[in-house]
Design a binder for these strands. Sequence first.
DNA 1: GCCATGGCTTTGTCCGGACAATCGAACTAG
DNA 2: CTAGTTCGATTGTCCGGACAAAGCCATGGC
Lengths: 253, 253
Amino acid sequence: MTAPGADQPQPLPLSVDRTSPVPLYFQLAQQLEAAVEQGRLAPGTLLGNEIELAARLGLSRPTVRQAIQSLVDKGLMVRRRGVGTQVVHSQVRRPLELSSLYEDLEAAGQRPATKVLRITMEPATAEIAAALGVAEGTEVHLVERLRYAHDEPMALLRNHLPPDLLALTAQELESTGLYRLMRASGITLHSARQSVGARTATAGEGRALDEEPGAPLLTMERTTYDDTGRAVEFGSHVYRASRYKFDFQLLVR
Amino acid sequence: MTAPGADQPQPLPLSVDRTSPVPLYFQLAQQLEAAVEQGRLAPGTLLGNEIELAARLGLSRPTVRQAIQSLVDKGLMVRRRGVGTQVVHSQVRRPLELSSLYEDLEAAGQRPATKVLRITMEPATAEIAAALGVAEGTEVHLVERLRYAHDEPMALLRNHLPPDLLALTAQELESTGLYRLMRASGITLHSARQSVGARTATAGEGRALDEEPGAPLLTMERTTYDDTGRAVEFGSHVYRASRYKFDFQLLVR
DNA sequence: GCCATGGCTTTGTCCGGACAATCGAACTAG
DNA sequence: CTAGTTCGATTGTCCGGACAAAGCCATGGC
């Protein structure tokens, strides 16, 4: 084998900027990811060995490995000892982020809108107190919203939040999503426990969502935690099954 | 601050075996994970700085960092520059693995059982051909199964598989899950695209699942890919909403 | 023709060190 | 007493090197 990079006639224009504050491994990872995204690195392509790649870029092997590893973690590439690193074939997109419905709709160009139905304080029931980690009967925020996409009702959202966390106004809630408000006020979202099920609509839900009573609904309950382990939100939502599906990608651990 | 390990009076018994073929970073990660699991490392505990930890174990800092990083990736710990690494509070369990229903039920001690309803070859419809990446009309495997837990019907599973992948027998399918059979025959599962929705039961589904027609059902469609990017399975499943929920944890990227 | 062996390539693991960036707390000046 | 500053602690990034383990292929023996 004379030409090691025989798989890619044009060796792919890669470069790093050492004056940038962006870490070198991250710069490289971004360029590789973009190349995969744009098809400049075809699925199945061998990436060429790490040592040579490092030499070509003037980087050390650990730095190059760190970049490649981050792409492997994202599911974009596969490494095989003795073989090399190759771009994975399938259409991997995003492995289920912790995103709000609002952001999902916005990203899909669905013109999301929100109508705030209620925004009060209420004593926590046993279930909600347990989810939020507060004493039963503690006054907690309650927000009830109706979410629209293209002017059609999509979902009925009920959220409970612990007190002293955030000041919520109807105006803010109608112009953006709850998670964005939380992040903006300095809360670092970390993880969430979700439960997705189905049931039929009550009469009230039917009216709100423009469905017949007895129509199938998708339900989701979610407790979200910040990076200190504190529960920051408990949501109990129903979606119109005729208009909404959870769509996501997952990777093998 | 005189005692750097003031957070943990007993410095936690950690040790590595250099004669073992198990990587050192992995040994350390396992021990730390076990300590978190068993509560010997309380939530919020500072882990003590990496350099000292490395010295104590006779390891280098990169090795210790690799161990800790793997736990951070799992969501068990949080690192903060200038502060340290601490055990996260919340009850993180598993961030949604690519697991089969069979394995989930088995792990939960639910006595799963399977009844194979059909196992044939069929020409692929347009939808199935697209999902599996074969030509429309190609003969593909079709497997229909009824899954029980505690002798109660739980879900109706329809799977399509490309030809020349696997030899399926009803006997094997009744004694274990499909994914386990795939793994056993050398297929490396890599990722899957899922879509979860809801609808009402047809008369036939009602009979099979012991539900009224019109009862709410959870639906899931899933296309699974191996590490070469080849689609290895397309599943179209319905679950009894009265008996089943998707329950999972997710982490912020 | 077939199988085992050995060598080559490539990634996996590990080391020891260096400096930068960030956080929190103690300290100092007003 | 308060606000700004400095400083120590800790993780983040990066380097260069070394050897081990695994996969692939060609060679050679049967």
